[in-house]
Design a protein around this nucleic acid. Structure first.
Lengths: 98, 98
DNA sequence: TTGACATGCAACCTGTTGGTTGCATATTAA
DNA sequence: TTAATATGCAACCAACAGGTTGCATGTCAA
C-alpha cells in the first residue's frame, strides 16, 4: 500500500469519531486554542464528559493525521485546524463520488 | 450522540480502509458485481491477496454504512455503489472544510 | 525557591477490527 | 438426485481504539 493510501486511511479514520469532528468544528470556528480551552468547550457546550487525557489522545490522533498544527507558547500548546489533508482527499479521491 | 453522527461515524470508518475504498472504486467503474467478481478484480488488478470471507466482511461493513446496495439474483448477490451517504456527509459536514 | 499550572507519558482495561479456517446452506446444472 | 457453485455463519486470533488512573516534567508567578 502506498503512502497516499496510508495518509487517506489516517485522515478518514481520524474523522470517523464524533468527538474528533467536534474538536475540528471548534477549531474551525476559533483557531489557536489550548488543550484546556478545548476541554472546557467540549464539556460546557457539548455536554461531553471526557478526561483531559482522553481529549489529549484525540488531539494526538488529529495531529498525526496532519489535521491540526500545533505550536508551543511557554507551557501551553496551541492547536489550529489544517484542512489541507481534507482538501487533498477531496481532490484525489472523494471528489469522484460527489 | 444523535443518529446522524452515528451514520457519519459508520461512513467515515468504512471509508478509512484502503481495501474498502478499492472495492468502491471498482463498483463505481462497474456496477452490479458479485462477491466473486470483486474478489477476482482485487486480486488480479490490485494484487490484493485476501480470502473470500475477508472481502465479504468488507462488503458487510460497506453495506452497513449504506454505501452499497445489494439484491439477490438466484444464488448470487449483486452489489452496487450508493454514493448517497457520501453526498450527505459532504452537504451536512465535510463541505465546510473545502 | 517554591508551588501551582499545563501538558505528557505509561500502564491498564474493554471492546472492536481485520484477518483466518472450517463448516453450513441454498441454488443451479448434469 | 447429485455434484458443483455462491454465499453465509461462527469461532478464533492478534492488533488497535478509546477510555481511565497515576505520576512525571517543564514553565510561570508569588
Amino acid at each position: 500500500m502506498n503512502a497516499q493510501a496510508r495518509q487517506f486511511d489516517a485522515v478518514l479514520q481520524a474523522l470517523s469519531d464524533q468527538t474528533r469532528r467536534l474538536i475540528l468544528d471548534e477549531l474551525r470556528l476559533r483557531p489557536e486554542q489550548t488543550l484546556f480551552e478545548i476541554c472546557v468547550r467540549l464539556t460546557e457546550k457539548h455536554q461531553l464528559n471526557l478526561t483531559r487525557q482522553a481529549i489529549s489522545k484525540h488531539l494526538n490522533v488529529l495531529e498525526a493525521a496532519l489535521l491540526i498544527r500545533t505550536t508551543w507558547k511557554g507551557r501551553t500548546k496551541i492547536h489550529s485546524l489544517d484542512s489541507g489533508p481534507i482538501r487533498k482527499l477531496y481532490r484525489k479521491w472523494l471528489g469522484k463520488y460527489l
